[in-house]
């Protein structure tokens, strides 16, 4: 499988950016059908912020600096996710691939993307550190495993240096600088790039950029969601006078037992 990669010569780098569609951050979650499903009525969808603000914009910067030549966007979903893909295309990217399937878990998603990625020699695969809907943060690392390539998560800075990449990433209580050869999957977070607003030129170009639907390989999910629940409402607040911080400390000690 390794032979599929490594065609990278400076300036011809191909980047795959994984994007997913998620409900807008201001969405209130409402359940339906005996709590077995989320009520999506009236939900506005956006590109997962980590995918858009960091992974995609990082790819665009690499292209603008002449390091990368092609940026492909990939997502898994039925035709109704296309408006969100075009939102991403409005920021940039040369073409988009939609794996025409509803995915039920990270394993399905990663398998679909891995199968497609094998057919194209990507030098760099970028994704967000997690999607803000199911918060698994699993697809990137799983994809790297399925492709037998390296994975670096929680990246805060990415520099391409010839055929290798220098990545700063978050570690517990600090930061680490890693180096590894391409190809690699990197999961991005804040720091990698600055969020952009799509401009008129990009919005108008989004319609004309190729967006192709790809038939998925057959793969079954390995998890299922049986039910959802909403967090219980906090039981009443205790208000403490601003001049009585001793009382607050005492409550934190005797009642909350955290001091």
């Amino acid at each position: 499988m390794v032979s599929l990669f490594g065609r990278f010569r400076g300036g011809y780098m191909k980047i795959l950016v994984c994007i997913s569609q998620v409900p807008d951050t201001s969405t209130k979650i409402v359940l339906k059908d005996d709590n077995t499903a989320i009520n999506n009525q009236g939900t506005t969808y956006i590109v997962n912020p980590y995918d858009e603000w960091y992974a995609l914009v990082c790819a665009l910067e690499l292209k603008e600096s002449g390091t990368a030549s092609d940026i492909h966007l990939i997502t898994v979903g039925k035709a109704d996710v296309e408006p969100v893909i075009r939102k991403a295309l409005a920021l940039g990217g040369d073409e988009a691939i939609r794996i025409d399937a509803d995915s039920n878990d990270p394993f399905q998603t990663a398998t679909y993307i891995a199968e497609y990625a094998k057919s194209v020699s990507y030098d760099l695969i970028l994704c967000g550190k997690e999607s803000i809907d199911y918060n698994n943060g699993a697809v990137g690392a799983m994809l790297a495993g399925l492709l037998d390539i390296d994975y670096i998560g929680f990246a805060t800075d990415i520099q391409i240096n010839g055929s290798s990449v220098i990545v700063k990433r978050e570690i517990e209580g600090g930061e680490e600088t890693d180096a590894c050869s391409l190809p690699v999957v990197i999961a991005c977070q804040k720091g990698v790039a600055e969020a952009r607003i799509p401009n008129m030129r990009g919005i108008m170009a989004a319609r004309t950029r190729p967006l192709k639907a790809v038939t998925p390989v057959a793969v079954d999910p390995v998890t299922e969601i049986l039910a959802y629940e909403l967090p219980p409402a906090k039981a009443g607040i205790k208000l403490i006078e601003a001049d009585n911080m001793d009382e607050l400390v005492a409550l934190l000690h005797t009642e909350a037992k955290v001091l």
């Binding site: 699993a138 799983m142 495993g145 517990e172």
Partner: peptide
């Protein structure tokens, strides 16, 4: 479900075709 586990667990799960509960 920390920085290390999140880099390793999905990879292991994918290799074993195992279901993952992350978090």
């Amino acid at each position: 479900h920390d920085i290390n586990g999140r880099a390793v667990a999905p990879r292991v799960a994918g290799k074993l075709k195992a279901g993952l509960v992350a978090g």
